Each structure stands twice: as structure tokens, then as C-alpha cells.
Amino acid sequence: WVPDSEAPNCMNCQVKFTFTKRRHHCRACGKVFCGVCCNRKCKLQYLEKEARVCVVCYETIS
């Protein structure tokens, strides 16, 4: 899990986070992404309901 303080930009597209461009943690890899790069949901083994995942993890999992 990457702390918010260590991620000033999206770890995929590099967009800078602001008050309106929020950070989202991928529940699969723990990296920090913008809403566009972390907009998929899928079922993870260790969680009961679907969770937010990044586009890279989504392609790997599904």
C-alpha cells in the first residue's frame, strides 16, 4: 500500500493530484491512481464485495 504522501501524481498517467483530481488506491496492487486509471471493479479473493482496481490489475485478473 503506497501512502498518499508518496504519490503526488497518478502512477499510470502521471496526472497531478489536486483537490478535484483525487487519489484512488488499487485494492489489488496498492498503488495510487487517478479516477480514470483506477475505474474498474472486480471481485478479489480476500474481499466479499467487488473492489476498485486499476486498469492494469483488471486486465491481469479478468
Rank of each mutant, 00 (worst) to 15 (best):
G30I: 02
C34E: 04
N9T: 14
S62R: 05
V36L: 09
F33K: 02
V36R: 09
W1S: 15
S62G: 12
C38K: 01
K16R: 08
G35E: 14
F17Q: 00
S62P: 15
G35I: 12
Y58L: 07
N39L: 09
C26E: 00
T20G: 06
F19G: 09
E6T: 06
T18F: 06
K21G: 04
S5Y: 05
R40M: 14
H24E: 04
K41I: 13
Y46E: 15
T60G: 11
C29A: 01
K16M: 14
H25S: 03
F17P: 02
R22G: 05
F19M: 15
E59W: 06
C34V: 01
E6K: 09
M11E: 09
G30K: 12
C54R: 01
S62M: 15
R27E: 03
W1L: 06
D4V: 04
K31F: 06
L47E: 14
H24G: 02
V56G: 14
C10P: 01
R22D: 11
A28N: 12
S62N: 14
R22Y: 07
S5F: 07
C10I: 00
C37G: 02
K41A: 15
C34D: 03
P3I: 14
L47T: 14
I61S: 14
N39P: 07
V53I: 06
E6H: 07
K43R: 12
V36P: 10
C26R: 00
N12D: 15
C13H: 03
T20N: 09
S5M: 15
Y46T: 15
H25M: 07
C38R: 08
G30L: 09
A51C: 07
K41E: 15
T20H: 15
V36E: 07
N39K: 11
K21Y: 03
V56H: 11
V56Y: 10
P8I: 12
C57Q: 00
V55M: 10
C38L: 05
C34N: 02
E50H: 09
S5G: 09
C26I: 00
C54Y: 00
E50K: 11
F17Y: 05
V56C: 06
N12W: 08
C42M: 14
S5Q: 13
C10L: 00
V32W: 03
N9F: 08
F33C: 09
H25A: 02
K31P: 02
E50F: 05
A28P: 03
R27K: 04
W1Q: 15
T20Y: 07
E59P: 10
C34T: 01
